[in-house]
Design a protein around this nucleic acid. Sequence first.
DNA 1: GCAAGGTC
Length: 719
Amino acid sequence: MVTLIIAEKPNVAKKIAYALAERKPIRKTLYGVPYYELSRDGKKIIVAPAVGHLYTLAPKTKTYGYPIFDIEWVPVYVAEKGKSYAKDYIKALRELAKRADEFIVACDYDTEGEVIGYTALKYACGVDPKKAKRMKFSALTKRDILKAWYNLEPTINFGMADAGIARHILDWYWGVNLSRALTHAIKRASGKWMILSTGRVQGPTLKFLVEREKEIANFKPTPYWVIKMTLEKNGKQYTATYEKERILDEEEAKRIVQEAKKGPAFVEKVEVKQQKRNPPHPFDLGTLQREAYSAFGYSPKKTLDIAQRLYEMGICSYPRTSSQKLPKNLNYKYIIQSLAKIPEYKPFAHELLGKPQLKPVEGQKDDPAHPAIYPTGELPKPGELTQEEKNIYDLIVRRFLAAFADPAVREIMKVIINSNNHHFILSGARTVKEGWLKIYGKYVSFDEVILPKFREGEPVKVIQIKREKKKTKPPARYSPASVIKKMEDLGIGTKATRAQILETLYQRGYIEGKKKIRVTPLGMKVVEALEKNVPEIVSVELTREFEEKMDEIMKRKLSKDRVIEEARGQLIKILREFKAKELDIGKELMEKLLEREKNKKSKKKTAKELTAEEEEAIKNAVENHEKKSNNLIIVGKCPKCGGDLVVRYNRKTGKRFVGCSNWPSCDVTYPLLQRGKIIPTGKVCPECNAPVVKIKEGKKEYEVCLDMKCKKKMDKNKY
DNA sequence: GCAAGGTC
């Protein structure tokens, strides 16, 4: 009697084997595929892995027309390029199945897992799925796996399998048929063979990008005025803003300035509040993708690829998770002790290990199959990681460590200045207790505006009060990271597919722009044509409908065949109408394509103007980002242009340096030590004219000028 | 060839 347990993927097979084995499982390979032999309760057990879906849907006949509904399950390597590795897994399962007389599915307990198990049994093992039992666990711990083993479900969950199969078929019917319809329309109109596509997820994603594009195009900026007061205290200048932040009428703004200028100005009120900020929760994939985008500018796809490599090296946990919770039984202490061997993390790790209890902050979201992303405690070998891998690893490690650290405490100061009964507000904020910011502050930090002490009633020395004209701005364009977030919010796609689907929209020429996504005229037209003819496919409602139907299939209230039949009927009608209008739709799509090609050739000039505009936009974005999320520390005046010299962070490497606020028109920069706290001194080096900063590293504290080549640098504390 | 979903 031999039992074959089928796992969803290799490393889960290993975990199951180790959990069930009474001694140590024996690792063997077949066609290069690892599997495990072990025994428990006198039973011989083989644990073998799938690699996700081993089978996929494909048309029975190789025709290019539509409608097409005649499809079947085939091995993935037959239907898709780059899937040849799956062949060995299928061969291995087939071979191992011959040795077994009992079968257990132990894939992730969700609809896709059930389909993976079902198709593996039926097509790879050649076994009737009705004969298989089911192990059902929601965490990959020894305890949960053993519990599942002793509480086997007598069969796989056929409701779940059917729901999953229906999902596969419906997505195929809708997606492939409409993609073919679009492609044929172009072919009819132009003779060009150009692949267009849409689907249940692509459609609504492109649609919300188009909506934003239209909002931007239709946006009419309206002017408004802000009033600012410049005041001086202890020889330093500060800017307070008028209580009403936006004034829509210029005359009103003028009047306020005139009246306020009369004074006298005095401090009416000083409010000081302390704010506790808890550490951020551990990473789920979406949050990691957003954070890596904002810290390093990596696309969600790139981040997933890098995280997958770290996972394969064994130094990080599985990245395709939507959980923000760490496994309860994880040995936190071991991992932190291990991370302490990396000099960069040593001080943080030691501090955490000194705490009486290691309890991480957790987020709301959970995932039945995987915990949040965490460093495993196995360390990268020196020189093993590329810079990109180092960046993502650093992000994951710091986020993990920060979860155990103390909250940060911020002091928020508000000084209300009265000048002739007009109120101006001077705001300050500083971090009083760094807490987790010490570890993770590199990636999220807060405004650091330190104000001197103000007394209520004290007179204020006003330098200037003036109005500034501003314009309302159109809504921001989506970035790859914010698209993923929006998809998450709408509940379309999955953590593992969203990044790839976004890439597809780029490939099809529907969208462009690496950071700020613009919809191309083709993308606009595709949505327009679909909305007119097949509104279902660009609506998130289709996903909702699928989910409801899958739910009913799972509960056995509805048969999968009926759902599939209905979809087919609906599509036949839609596609017939589409085909009748094919030529017109094609012409409509083509028109924009041709215009676009012409534009590309003749309008080099506009392309350049756009770059200047974009440069400005990027500059603003960087500034905003830094103001919002980094400590904006002003260390002095730029010797070249008089602008502010501020501490900035390199987008790629995350390293800090000092740069001029007038960048890109002024390119003055100074390198900075990466360790220690930077404190502005207001002093200027008599030798080189560069600002002098105080650097505080633990108990050590010294002053140094920013110019690396300055001789005076050598004798510390002499400024 | 086209989808979306697992995973390397």
